[in-house]
Design a protein around this nucleic acid. Structure first.
Length: 328
DNA sequence: CCGCCTTCCTGACAGC
DNA sequence: TGCTGTCAGGAAGGCG
């Protein structure tokens, strides 16, 4: 499932093909993949995200998306956490580089979303929900297929607004998403302080996209294994040094996964060419239930917290005594 | 503000 | 063989 490294691989693959291209046509085959798209200006906050639409409202939403996106010029893709967006603007009069547009084509891959770059005559992939035809001044015509089996992902046209910290612009729907650990403007000290203020388990804190973005279930488990932290360890009992170490290890695992093209654990994740990544071979905890810990040989266990599986080594990742007593 | 629960959705798979 | 139930999980709304 796509987390930060996987979305970054997609962004890198998309960039050369879409930057400077023009949208020739748009086809929405399933309006449920437009959950976040708000018809109209895209910034009025109306429309109710995630609300199941009446069929006629879905059709209207699809028509609005198709009409407004067609003819626009695409800029260079940007990523924050697991959100990816392409600034869009009116067709340039000259060879002006687009990037300072007011609007953006916003994508979230959810669990099974894929953005695939295909030749015009390529066969359709399974579960293609939205299709864009683009024309690039150098690369000619291409098709971008948004495929998504489980429909937790979506595309939307959204307005760009100044980021809360004043650095750059972010789509309105991603304004509450924190910077991610690979962002040069990420505030390490603020993250450490926020983590230590909270009473929740470190695992749910890592998954909280308003504290740090880009972390999903796989990389949360991997970072905690590396930091030797039990997933239910309260943020408030983690020392400042340990919290900083966790952040450093999270950066390490993200960087290593990115270098391997991401994690294709259940074959839901592929890059823009439909290829899998290779980081699954290097996972130490996620998906290794019943296999020996790579550090101490103890069998990895899997437990369910918060409707989610947590994989960890019961010997290397122990709860502090006081907390494990309190948990009983 | 905080933490926990539910909802959205499909397909793979286990069990009867 | 064919049904039913369970599971996978990101994000956001709602509730106490």
């Amino acid at each position: 499932m796509p987390e930060l490294p996987e979305v970054e691989v997609v962004r890198l693959g998309l960039a050369p093909a879409v930057s400077g291209a023009t949208v020739v046509a748009v086809e929405v085959r399933d309006h449920r993949a437009l959950k976040r798209h708000v018809p109209g200006t895209g910034d009025d906050g109306l429309g109710g995200h995630g609300v199941t639409l009446a069929p006629e409202a879905g059709a209207a939403r699809a028509a609005d998306f198709e009409r407004r996106l067609t003819g626009l010029r695409l800029g260079t893709p940007v990523r924050r956490g697991k959100f990816l967006w392409i600034p869009v603007g009116p067709p340039a009069a000259g060879a002006r580089v687009v990037g300072a547009g007011e609007m953006a084509l916003l994508a979230h891959l959810g669990m099974s979303g894929q953005l695939l770059l295909r030749e015009l005559d390529a066969a359709g992939d399974r579960h293609v929900r939205i299709r864009l035809w683009i024309e690039h001044p150098e690369h000619g015509e291409l098709r971008i297929d948004f495929a998504d089996q489980r429909l937790f992902g979506s595309l939307a046209l959204d307005r760009l607004a100044a980021a809360p910290d004043g650095i750059g612009e972010v789509p309105v729907q991603a304004l509450h998403i924190a910077r991610d650990p690979l962002d040069p403007a990420f505030d390490d000290a603020a993250f450490v302080a926020a983590l230590r203020r909270r009473g929740s388990g470190v695992k749910s804190l890592l998954l909280d996209q308003s504290l740090v973005s880009g972390v999903g279930n796989i990389y949360a488990d991997e970072a905690l294994w590396r930091a030797r932290l039990h997933p239910e360890t309260a943020g408030s009992v983690v020392g400042a040094r340990k919290a900083a170490e966790l952040l450093r290890l999270l950066r390490d695992v993200f960087a290593q996964a990115l270098a391997e093209g991401g994690t294709s654990f259940d074959e839901q994740y592929v890059n823009v060419n439909g290829q899998a990544g290779y980081f699954a071979h290097q996972l130490h905890s996620y998906g290794r239930t019943g296999l020996p810990c790579d550090r101490c040989g103890t069998l990895i266990v899997r437990e369910r917290f918060m409707n989610r599986s947590s994989h960890y080594c019961p010997k290397c990742q122990r709860l502090a005594k006081a907390q494990s007593a309190a948990a009983k």
